[in-house]
Computed example of a mutant assay.
Amino acid sequence: MKDLIGTTVMVHPELTQDPVNKQGQMGTITHLVDEDRLAYVRFKNDVIGLYSTDALLMLIPPELVVDKLRTEIGIFEMDASEVVDILEMYQLHATRIPEVQQEALDWAMTHDRISKAIVFSVEDRIGFQLDRPDQQQKPGRGR
């Protein structure tokens, strides 16, 4: 789960109780509290908020996006231009530049069908990693 530190996230826009009033805004995970499924998020103005991981949204991992699109494209009723947009979003995300990653996530969130296909919560990501320990990053090996 430590690989989530530094991840660009968006506070769920419909969050009803937000400790620092950042609904719909982007930030970066700075620390995870594993046992409580909480994450500290730093925002552009250096404000830090503590959030439940189910209140934080992120792009699905890049290694899953092509398979997900291949198997579920019919479910989301996407056209070719939306698939191209998704691939461009992941090119932006791959830069590892926080501002550019925020642009990619923001772009995804502005398109309903795209966000349903490639955005999920940090909680979902943690659950996915725990369910598939064979897919966790090995020490000394990049993805």
Rank of each mutant, 00 (worst) to 15 (best):
M1H: 12
D3H: 15
D3N: 11
D3G: 12
L4F: 13
L4G: 07
L4V: 13
T7K: 02
M10D: 00
V11Y: 03
H12M: 09
P13D: 09
P13A: 10
E14A: 14
E14D: 10
L15Q: 03
L15I: 09
T16P: 06
T16W: 09
T16F: 10
Q17G: 12
D18R: 11
V20K: 11
N21E: 07
K22L: 04
Q23W: 08
Q23H: 13
Q23I: 11
Q25T: 12
M26H: 06
T28M: 07
I29F: 02
H31S: 08
H31L: 11
L32R: 05
L32M: 09
D34H: 11
D34S: 14
D34L: 09
E35T: 14
D36P: 03
R37Q: 15
L38G: 01
L38K: 11
Y40V: 07
V41G: 01
R42Y: 08
F43T: 04
F43S: 03
N45A: 12
N45R: 12
V47K: 02
I48R: 14
I48K: 13
I48Y: 14
G49S: 08
G49V: 08
L50F: 13
Y51T: 02
T53F: 02
T53V: 10
D54M: 07
A55G: 06
L56P: 00
L56H: 03
L56T: 02
L59R: 00
P62G: 08
P62F: 04
L64G: 02
L64Q: 02
V65D: 00
K68Y: 02
K68T: 05
L69D: 00
L69N: 01
L69P: 00
R70I: 12
R70M: 09
R70D: 07
T71K: 07
T71M: 05
T71L: 06
E72C: 08
E72M: 05
G74D: 08
F76K: 01
M78I: 06
A80K: 14
S81D: 06
E82V: 10
V83R: 06
V83N: 04
I86H: 05
M89A: 15
M89Q: 14
M89I: 15
Q91P: 04
Q91M: 12
H93R: 09
T95K: 07
R96W: 14
I97K: 14
I97T: 15
P98W: 11
E99K: 15
V100C: 11
V100M: 09
Q102L: 05
A104S: 06
A104T: 06
A104C: 08
L105W: 02
L105P: 00
D106N: 15
M109Q: 10
T110H: 08
H111G: 02
H111D: 03
R113T: 13
S115H: 08
K116L: 05
I118V: 07
I118L: 00
F120Y: 09
F120Q: 01
E123T: 04
R125A: 00
R125W: 00
R125P: 00
I126C: 03
F128S: 03
Q129K: 08
Q129F: 04
L130G: 10
L130H: 07
L130V: 12
D134G: 12
Q137V: 10
Q137W: 09
Q137K: 10
K138S: 04
K138C: 04
G140I: 08
R141A: 11
R141F: 07
R141Y: 11
